[in-house]
């Protein structure tokens, strides 16, 4: 056995131990929430968070998904998941579309003040939603978009980060590709759809992952925007379940935990699906 192989075999268990500790550190709390969602809330109040799954797992999830709750007794977790999905997908797709088009204009068209405009867009990175939340709310309210998906999504989709990423990416596309496309008779629109969008596939997948998760986790904006239970998202829903102390009952921790687990699944799914595409795209791409 040569030195390298010896060293490799020696260090592998240590490496693995470190990795396993890291995984446990991240995954154990989630497991405990999952396990605890199988107990009645009274039991959890008395005995704390549990390590082994309780016997009411199926009951809890069934009731969370199908029982109508909320202020108007009209909303199920299924509906909340759907709302979150619409918000997450609308948010991610909207951001990608808007920022790709903005970056396309900035990189490929010469117009007066182009770079000034770019830096103007870029500087809005410094202004998070929270800073402009009152004016944004006012605008949306005046447009009559409160309690609508449009009002939930549209004010959030302008993206300086996305524009910046796409700008950098477009600038790395060789100019000859544009020239070849021009000679091949592609106008600006065709070049964008036929050439630029397909070669940006990996960028799009990467941004989609990030943006979907950000959109899914939006809390403050949906909280302000929606007063109607029909538009409650799941992240906001968890909070309202935990706060539900009307009728002098204790908070339904098991339902809250179940909602948290349900809220985790779609982002994980999106990451898993797009990660594959993302890596595949990275390996294939050759500009």
């Amino acid at each position: 056995m040569n030195g390298f192989a010896y060293w490799w075999h020696r260090t592998q268990p240590v490496d693995h131990a470190i990795l396993i500790i890291g995984v446990l550190f991240l995954a154990l709390p989630i497991w405990m929430i999952f396990a605890s969602s199988g107990y009645p809330p009274e039991y959890l109040i008395q005995n704390g968070v549990q390590f082994w799954p309780g016997d009411q797992l199926i009951q809890t999830y069934d009731s969370v998904l199908h029982d109508r709750r909320g202020f108007t007794q009209q909303i199920t977790a299924t509906r909340m998941l759907m709302n979150s999905f619409i918000l997450g997908i609308g948010f991610a797709v909207g951001k990608i579309v808007v920022s790709m088009m903005a970056a396309y204009a900035i990189v490929y068209f010469r117009f007066p003040l182009a770079s000034l405009l770019f830096w103007l867009i870029f500087s809005t990175l410094l202004l998070p939603l929270e800073v402009r939340i009152i004016p944004s709310y006012k605008v949306v309210a005046d447009l009559g978009l409160l309690n609508s998906y449009t009002g939930l999504i549209v004010p959030l989709i302008a993206s300086a980060t996305g524009t910046f990423f796409f700008r950098q990416f477009f600038r790395s596309v060789p100019e000859e590709i544009l020239e070849a496309a021009r000679l091949d008779g592609a106008g600006p629109w065709k070049f964008f759809i036929d050439i630029l969008v397909p070669i940006s596939k990996t960028m799009i997948a990467a941004l989609f992952i990030i943006m979907f998760v950000v959109g899914w986790n939006q809390y403050l904006w949906p909280l302000l925007m929606t007063t109607n239970d029909d538009y409650v998202t799941i992240v906001y829903g968890i909070k309202s379940v935990m706060q539900n102390i009307d009728e002098s009952r204790i908070p339904e921790y098991n339902r809250g935990f179940a909602l948290a687990i349900l809220a985790l699944l779609p982002p994980i799914g999106v990451v898993l699906i797009f990660q594959k595409m993302f890596i595949k795209g990275l390996l294939e791409s050759d500009k």
Binding site: P174, E176, I177, E179, A180, L183, I195, P198, I199, K201
Partner: peptide, 14 residues
């Protein structure tokens, strides 16, 4: 007029 470029400028996704 058709042109052949130095780095070929093929569309990588096609």
């Amino acid at each position: 007029v058709a042109m052949v470029f130095q780095n070929y400028a093929l569309y990588p996704h096609m």
